[in-house]
Design a protein around this nucleic acid. Sequence first.
DNA 1: CTGACCTGTGAAAGTCCTGTGAAAGCAGGC
DNA 2: GCCTGCTTTCACAGGACTTTCACAGGTCAG
Lengths: 256, 256
Amino acid sequence: MIDTDSGFVTVLSKRAEAAGWQLRHSAGAVPSEELVAMKLNAVLLDPAVLGDEGWEYLERVCGMLPDLGVIVCTGRSTVAQRVRGLRLGVDDWITKPCHPEEAMARVEAVSRRRRRGRHEVESRPLVAAELEIRPDQFQAFVSGESLDLTKREFELLHLLAGAKGQVLERETIYQRVWGYAMAHGDRSVDVFIRKLRQKLEKRSPNWGYIHTHFGVGYRFDPEPADGLLEEPLVIPEGAPAPAPSSQVVHSSFTTG
Amino acid sequence: MIDTDSGFVTVLSKRAEAAGWQLRHSAGAVPSEELVAMKLNAVLLDPAVLGDEGWEYLERVCGMLPDLGVIVCTGRSTVAQRVRGLRLGVDDWITKPCHPEEAMARVEAVSRRRRRGRHEVESRPLVAAELEIRPDQFQAFVSGESLDLTKREFELLHLLAGAKGQVLERETIYQRVWGYAMAHGDRSVDVFIRKLRQKLEKRSPNWGYIHTHFGVGYRFDPEPADGLLEEPLVIPEGAPAPAPSSQVVHSSFTTG
DNA sequence: CTGACCTGTGAAAGTCCTGTGAAAGCAGGC
DNA sequence: GCCTGCTTTCACAGGACTTTCACAGGTCAG
C-alpha cells in the first residue's frame, strides 16, 4: 500500500491483518525492483502522493510488472484520468473516500483473477523421457542422479516442461521466471538455455529436450536424439538429402 | 451485454464496434451454457434487469464460468451490495450513470488481466483438409509431420487460413503480417507465397491450398488437386486443364 | 495476335538471431 | 575480508531467415 492518509492506512491495516493478509506500507514511491522482491499479489496506491511522477510511476510499474495487480485509490478524478489509468495497465480505480471493506473486496477481486490463470501444477513431480523434475526439491534427475541445477536453471526448466509442446517466447519466459518484464536486448534467457542444455546432455545424451524456434522462443519436447545415425546414411543419388528441418534447431552438441 | 437501458446499449454498441470488439446484447438472463458457447471475453450486466434472480444469477455465472470476466454496471448500490458482488466473483462494479468510455476501459482492464493470467497465445488449432495449423507451436502439420515453417511463413499461412475463402490483397497481407505498410514494388509476399506452396506441396501433394487472384491477391481454400496428377501428366495437346473459371489461377506445379 | 503488365522462380546479397566463451557483477559463507 | 558459486553482460562468429533482383512465363485488354 502506497498512501499517506494515515487514517485510511490504519483502518486497512487492521482489516487486512484480520483477514490474514500481509500488508506492507510506504508513504512514497517504491522502486519496482523492491516490489518484485516483495512478491506481492497487488499494490494499492494513491498516485496523488507521488505528485507529478504519478503517471510515470504507474506506467513504469504496470509495464515492468504485468503480473502485479494494481489498484488506484485516490480522490476526485475525471473520466479521462480514470480511462488513462486503466488503459495504462491499472486493474481497478477506486474513488476516495471509500469504504475500507470495498477496497478490500476490490483488491481481492483483482488478486483472484490474477491467481486464476497461474499454473496450479506447482509441486507435482513431472516426468519427460529420462528426466524427472521435482519441484519439492527444486531439482531435476536422470535415473536418480541430480543435474545440479541452480535455482534459475530449475525454474526455467520447470516452466518449459510445464508447457510441454508449446513454444514460449523469450518475453514470456523472462516474465514468468524472473518476475518482471525483460529489457530489450537481454540475453539471459539464451544463456540459461545453454546451461540447461549442457547439463541435460551430460546426464541424458540420447535425448533432445529443448528446441529453438528461430525468431520466436523455445519449446520443450523430449525427442530421441537421432543425430547418432544408426544407418550410415545411404541416400539414393539424385534425391537431395532430406532437408534438415530448417527452422527448428535441435539442441546442438557441444563440439567445442 | 445484458441490459435494458437502450440508450446505454446503443452508445456502447457503437463504441465497441469502433474499437473492433464483437458485442452481443440481451435484455434478459442468458443461460450459462449459452454464455459458454459464445466464447466471450467478458460480460457486462445490470443485475437489476433480472429482478430478484439477480444475485442468484451472478453467483451461478461466476461459479460456472470462472474464466469469464464479469462486470456489473448498475444504478445506486450500497457498499454491502458491492462487496457481496465482488466477493461472489464479480470482477468490477460500476455505478450508473457512467461514462461509456470508462465502461469500455474497465471491460478492457478485466479482459487484459484475464488473458494475462492464462498467457494464452490466441486461438486454438485450425484444420483445413490435410493441414493442421497450431498457433501454440508456431507451426503447421500434415499427418503429424511438421512443415518446418519459419516465423514469417507461419504467420502468413495463419493469416490466410484464418480468412479462409476470402481474397486478401497484397497490401492487406503485408500490413497484417509485417506490421507496417508495404513499399511500392515489394515482392516479399509473392516470395513467401511460393515458399509456402513449396512446403505445402511437399507434404500434401494432393491438395491445392493457396490460389492466386490475378491483379488482386491471394485466397486460401483447400481444393483437391484435380485428379490429373495421378496420371503421369500426359495432357492432350491444345486442351489444357479444365478451363479455369474466371480469373482464378491455380497454384502452378513446380515443373522445375 | 500483340504489347503491357502481373506473377512465378532461382539465386545472390543483406539482415538479424542465436550459440558460445569468457569476463564482470553480486550475494552468501567462512 | 576473502573466497566461492551464481547471475548478468559482452563481443564475436556462424547461420538462418528475409529481402532484393533479374528473368521467364502467364494473363489480359485492345
